[in-house]
Every structure is written in C-alpha cells, then in structure tokens.
C-alpha cells in the first residue's frame, strides 16, 4: 500500500499524541498558567491585576534572597561532589572483578529507595544524642555535633575549632544544610554511577589496548581516552544534577524543623519557600507563582549557559 506524503508526515504525530497530551496538559499549560497567575493578586481567587508587582515585592523580600543563597549553597555543594564521586565509583565498578553485580546493586539501592523513607532514616542518623553520625564521631574522639540543629556556617565552625574567628557572612552553608547535602549526594550517587557506567562501556576497548601498547599508564589513558570520550555523559550528568539540585524539596521538608527550613532558616531553599508561600501560609498563589517563574528562569538560563560554555568541550564521538 502506498502511503501519501501527507499521511506519512502526520503519522509520527499520531504516535506521539498520548505523550504529548500528557506533557501539554500537565507540564506546559500549568507553566503558562502560573505565568498568568504571577501577574495578579491571587489568594483564594483571582484578584486585581498587578503587572510586575509580585516580582517587585520579591526583589525586596530578604527571605527570598536568603532562600536563593541557601539553594546556591546546596547546588554548589551537591553538583561537583556528586559528579566526582560518581565518576570515581563508576570507573572502579567498571572493572572485571568477582561479585561486581553485588557492588553495583549496593550503589544503586539508595536510588530506588523512596526519598521519604531515606529522609526518615537519615534524620535518625543525624540525631544529636542517638544518631549514628555522632556515635561514629565519638569513636574517633570528636565531640558530638548538632547536625540538623546547627545553624552555624560550616566554615565558621571549622575556623572556630582551630581557634580562628570569621564573620558570619563568610560562614558558608550551615552544618544542617551540609548534612542535607551529604544525604542528597549519597541518594543520587547510584543514578549518576549508572549513567557513567553506560558511558564507560561505550568506549571501544581497542583504544585502551592501543594505548597500553603505546606505553600509556592508567592515569594517562583516563586523561586521554576516558575523559574526552565520556564527555557527553559527563555533560548530561552535570546538566541533570544541576537541575535536580535546584529543585530540592522533599528532604528539606521532612528532615528539618520544626519549623521546617530551620535552624534559623538556614535550610530554607527556594522550592520550599515557594511551597510555604503558596500552600502552607497565606496561600499567596500570585507570589508563589512569581517565585516559581524566577526559579524557572534561573534554571533555564543556567542550562543555556552550560550548553554554551561547557558543551564546546564535549566530544560527541
């Protein structure tokens, strides 16, 4: 049967339809709608049109800026750590040794465990009196830490412990936020490892053989073969981890407080602040939508920037 050109062009659309409908209905339209909402005074129902009023209030809202700073700390703490650690473990897990399946499973387990369950477990790990974290510190003779209750910046804490004093604004993320970062890196590690493993296994073995014949050691072959050929994966991991880190919410909501986002608001990240404004106190939909769109623009521009600056160095085989 001969298929006409018209039908040929339309048929892919038909196959895409189910996915498209879902994406449009539950992703695109809500995004556009929240754009619309952000231009209004919008509590329970639509109120007066305020144009950019919500955005103007946002600019003068110290809690918004603080939550942005907390998010930046979280992203800077999570992304490089996760990237380096997962690459490191992926290279190790790419060896031919016994019981490799078991090791890989172990690293992947946190990924498939529900984030809610993981958050509850880590909350106990960080418990000041009964937690595993302080127990382990005690074994090596370190005094117990406040972990999730400690609002002091990590740099300040470190400086204090060696007798130095630094101002609060140089203190860095609070120990509570660092505790969340550690947990989040652990949780996401397995996923990135799997991505890196897939990337590593795509690199032709002959290249390594040739390199060995030419006298290259393991470090040299990593630098000259693995790193450049893995760059598409690395770029993808970098992009996705950054986006996901900006959207951190669950662990903050479940592990910190009461009041959530504590101690002293040092773990209040942007998505939690959006939730607080829009769904928890005041039900200020207009304001929350404005926050959502600022977050959207930040992630979008960062992704574009990464594509522009980093992708130039990516080697697409």
């Amino acid at each position: 049967m001969k298929v006409s050109g018209y039908r040929k062009r339309l048929s892919p659309l038909f196959y895409l339809l189910p996915a498209l409908v879902i994406i449009i209905a539950f992703r695109l339209l809500p995004i556009l709608y929240s754009f619309f909402v952000s231009f209004f005074e919008w509590k329970l129902k639509r109120g007066a049109f305020v144009g950019l009023g919500q955005y103007k209030t946002l600019l003068h809202d110290p809690i918004f800026w603080k939550s942005l700073l907390n998010t930046a700390y979280f992203v800077l703490g999570t992304v490089p750590t996760s990237l380096l650690l997962s690459l490191f473990f992926a290279v190790l897990l790419n060896q031919r040794i016994r019981a490799m399946g078991a090791y890989r499973t172990t690293f992947f387990l946190p990924v498939i465990t529900s984030l809610v369950a993981v958050s509850m477990v880590w909350k106990w790990i960080y418990h000041p009196r009964l937690g595993l974290a302080n127990f382990l510190l005690g074994l090596i003779g370190i005094k117990p830490l406040g972990w999730l209750n400690e609002p002091t910046g990590i740099f300040k804490l470190t400086a204090n412990s060696i007798g130095l004093s630094i101002p609060n604004w140089l203190g860095g993320p609070s120990l509570a936020l660092v505790a969340i970062i550690i947990m989040s890196v652990w949780k996401g590690l397995g996923y990135n490892i799997v991505l890196f493993l897939a990337g590593l296994q795509n690199i032709p073995k002959q290249l390594y053989e040739a390199a060995r014949i030419d006298g290259a050691g393991p470090f040299r072959s990593f630098r000259r073969i693995t790193w450049p050929l893995l760059s598409p994966t690395t770029f993808y991991v970098l992009l996705m981890t950054t986006i996901v880190s900006f959207q951190v919410f669950t662990q903050i909501y479940l592990m910190t407080g009461p009041p959530v986002g504590g101690p002293q608001g040092t773990t209040k990240v942007i998505v939690y602040y959006l939730f607080e404004k829009g769904f928890d106190a005041g039900f200020d939909r207009g304001y929350a939508s404005a926050i959502a769109l600022v977050l959207f623009s930040i992630i979008l521009s960062l992704t574009l920037l990464q594509r522009k600056l980093v992708e130039r160095k990516v080697h697409y085989g």
Partner: peptide
C-alpha cells in the same frame, strides 16, 4: 512562623 523561627528557635 516568624515568632517561632526568629525568636523562639
């Protein structure tokens, strides 16, 4: 929330 976060805690 302000009372709990800023003052009490």
């Amino acid at each position: 929330r302000y009372l709990e976060e800023d003052a009490i805690e």
